[in-house]
Amino acid sequence: MGAGREVSISLDGVRDKNLMQLKKLNLALFPVRYNDKYYDDALASGEFTKLAYFSDICVGAIACRLEKKEGGGQFRVYIMTLGVLAPYRGLGIGTKLLNHVLDLCSKENFSEVYLHVQTNNEDAINFYKKFGFEITETIQNYYTNITPPDCYVLTKYTVQSTSKK
């Protein structure tokens, strides 16, 4: 004890068997109930959806959907949710989750990652800007029952795919 207080943070995939962990997190983090499609997409995204464990306790998650770009075999990554339980924020867990996805994108040569964020959510916008995301679009009345109802699209373009190795 004493000095060595750093607790290890590890990531684990989402499977049928532990899907409930993601559901519990979302229930605590977001005011929405996600439908089955959300969870199907998350499971289908494979490595792009991860749970974060703080000394064996599941405390956060990133969930993505892989989308086919129009006219082509290329994928882009849409971050559906990223969140960490309140008591466990400020420990670098969100950063670790996002970095994981960004690293994976460059490994897989996926050039585009994007997400939606409510226009007044400055903390979030600043957070993503640190990672090279930019506001690429504003959608009016994106949300139905929260104010403001508008959202930004934040996008990060990664490696210009010189696709063939």
Binding site: Q118, D123, A124, Y143
Partner: peptide, 24 residues
Amino acid sequence: SGGSQNVSSIKSNGKLEAFKDLNI
């Protein structure tokens, strides 16, 4: 069962981390 919605934001001690969401 179907609709689209919203978001939540949450901040923390000094640094931030968070949330967001979207429609399906």
